[in-house]
Amino acid sequence: MTQLVELQAALPKFAEAGIRLYAISYDEIGALADFVEHHEITFDLLADQGSKVIRKFGILNHYVTPEQVPYHGIPFPGTYLIDEDGDVSAKVFHRSLAQRESAEGLIDAALGEILLRSEGPTTAHADDSGIEFSLTYHGGAGVLRGGTMRRLVIRVDLPEGLHIYDEPVPTGMVATSFTIVGPEGLRSLPVEKPPTESLDLPGVGELQVWSDTADFAIPVWAADEIASLVRADNPGYVNIEVDITYQACDDQACRLPRTERLAVDVPVGSYVGPALGGGGMPGAATTSMDTGKWLGEMVKRGIAAAPDADAAVAYLHRTRDTFAAGPLGDSVTD
């Protein structure tokens, strides 16, 4: 639900980019209507009851069995970008079911470029050769939350005549690399690199380089150490540090390899969603009315799927115990 709330907040950005937004869920219409009213959602939420569309797209979560009511029917979460002709131009899925793409990441994917905004925490530095570096926390209006993918964007502005290298490079030369130094609990994926140019060096061969301005993006997200659902001691801010190692050259000579460290302070926000159980989620901004509607509709689905009355009663008992235990796993007594 955090992602849907963030998408609503970013709706003007989608409109500015010429993108219309739709979200498809396996939830019943009543649950979606309640969510829309409570969170003032203005883009279209579509109820795929029975998960028919989810199955046609081939994204039904096959790890959830039919016996696992009410969760059977959920999809692998992701996003499709569809152009004006109705063709899928791109799709965004992540390996972890807990990860969601940020609104800014979806817009960048649709437009094929990174649009940095002033709302993202940023720091900048220039070395003694005139190369300018900036580090921007990009996505989610500059706020770090658990489960939602953001990007650390490192922009490198090179003076005319200078270039830096991509891998591979000959022995004795240093390719450009990026290392996240901290904080603990910040997870990342491999760096997303911009296109390179070919440079033919006599006696060396063809190398791949960047010149002028190059934007590098590192997808990141917060693990439980930073943004926990079940702890109330989440930090208000984290300090993110990135080391940039590079070697700058011109058409005559190469400078010595260098490492520059950039750091930026990023605010940490809460998960937004239903209060899942009596155990509570101290680290979340929960909405109990979403839970009531969702749980009621899911219980109806579970009862309807039971083969007989005894199975329906057993299902109700399991649902009560699971819900009452909450994410902390507190015990329940009759």
Rank of each mutant, 00 (worst) to 15 (best):
M1P: 15
Q8A: 11
A10S: 13
A10N: 07
P12T: 09
A17D: 06
S25D: 04
S25P: 03
F35C: 14
H38L: 15
E40Y: 01
T42M: 13
D48E: 04
Q49L: 12
K52D: 15
I54V: 12
R55S: 12
I59C: 06
H62S: 15
P70L: 11
P70E: 10
Y71C: 13
G78C: 05
Y80K: 07
H94D: 11
L97H: 10
A98I: 13
R100V: 14
E101I: 13
S102Y: 07
E104R: 05
A110L: 11
R117W: 10
R117P: 12
A124K: 12
A124C: 06
D128H: 11
S129A: 13
S134H: 05
L144C: 13
L144S: 10
G147L: 13
D157V: 11
L158T: 06
L158P: 05
G161H: 06
P183G: 03
P195R: 00
E197I: 10
L207R: 00
Q208L: 14
D212M: 00
T213P: 03
V220L: 01
A223N: 00
E225T: 07
E225Q: 11
L229E: 01
A232Q: 02
N234H: 00
N239G: 06
E241Y: 02
V242A: 03
Y246V: 01
Q247A: 04
D251M: 10
Q252I: 14
G279Q: 02
G279P: 04
P282L: 05
T287R: 00
V299W: 03
V299G: 05
P307C: 11
T319P: 03
G326D: 05
G326C: 09
L328D: 01
